[in-house]
């Protein structure tokens, strides 16, 4: 059993991990963009725009889904913000292949950002798993969270998405459909792991899972269209 007391003496690790996840993700995305010959100033401006848009849309989605009741950070909103930032930068600087390259690198980096941010959720006590007393269960205690023994869904998400990121980075040059596979597997992993969350209790399917299904369908459709296009060219 892992014991986590959420009464932190100094700084809550949640915002620290969110900032760290965005910082690491943006740096990796900058390196990938520069390696793919995206200009230095364009890559730099994207580093400034992407975290702001990610945070804004993360807040916006939670605000909308809560009916204007509270603010929170939604990972799917953050994903939308990152993609929109890449799209906007590619539209401002319409050089050949910029859109494809920026979106590709954003897709590769998103699992890493999500993986690190889940460590913040683990330590902060949010997005936790269903009641569970088996191996590797987590016991939360502290004045900010109810005492509970739950499934370690956040470490599971961290591990799964880190593996997806590492595989994506190593396989992207060898297989032409790697980026779309990263997109599909990320959506699938989030869909499946959502069943193990406390927030999913008494629900057949959550709003997050519906969005993940839409992303899955989009990923499969584009993969199929790409495959057909390559078959015609061959």
């Amino acid at each position: 059993m892992i014991e986590i007391n959420t009464d932190y003496k100094f700084i809550s690790p949640y915002p620290v991990m969110i900032i760290l996840s965005l910082t690491v993700g943006i740096i990796v995305m900058y390196i990938l963009n520069r390696k793919d010959q995206i200009q230095k100033n364009v890559s730099g401006y994207l580093c400034m725009l992407a975290p702001m848009m990610s945070l804004f849309f993360g807040l916006l989605l939670t605000y909308i889904t809560s009916g204007g009741q509270y603010f929170g950070l939604s990972s799917l909103g953050g994903l939308a913000g990152m993609y929109l930032a890449c799209l906007i930068m590619a539209l401002i600087n319409p050089q050949k292949d910029t859109v494809r390259i920026m979106m590709k690198n954003c897709t590769l980096v998103l699992p890493l950002i999500y993986s690190i941010s889940k460590i913040g959720c683990l330590l902060g006590g949010c997005c936790r798993g269903t009641a569970y007393h088996g191996p590797f269960c987590i016991h939360y205690a502290g004045s900010k969270t109810d005492s509970a023994v739950v499934f370690p869904v956040q470490p599971a998400e961290t591990l799964v998405f880190l593996i997806i990121f590492i595989l994506g980075i190593f396989l992207q040059k060898k297989h032409q459909h790697t980026v779309w596979m990263v997109f599909i597997f990320s959506a699938l992993a989030k869909f499946l792991l959502d069943f193990l969350r406390e927030s999913h209790t008494n629900q057949i399917i959550s709003f997050t899972q519906i969005l993940c299904l839409l992303l899955l369908l989009t990923g499969f459709l584009i993969l199929y269209l790409n495959h057909q296009k390559l078959k015609k060219q061959a």
Binding site: Y45, M52, L59, L60, M89
Partner: peptide, 24 residues
């Protein structure tokens, strides 16, 4: 806090326009 999100949105739009000017 009803105008917080529109306020942040306005800063974002301003930032995008400034980046357009810096690039173009």
């Amino acid at each position: 806090d009803e105008f917080i999100l529109p306020g942040i949105g306005a800063i974002l739009l301003s930032c995008i326009l400034t980046i357009i000017v810096r690039l173009r």
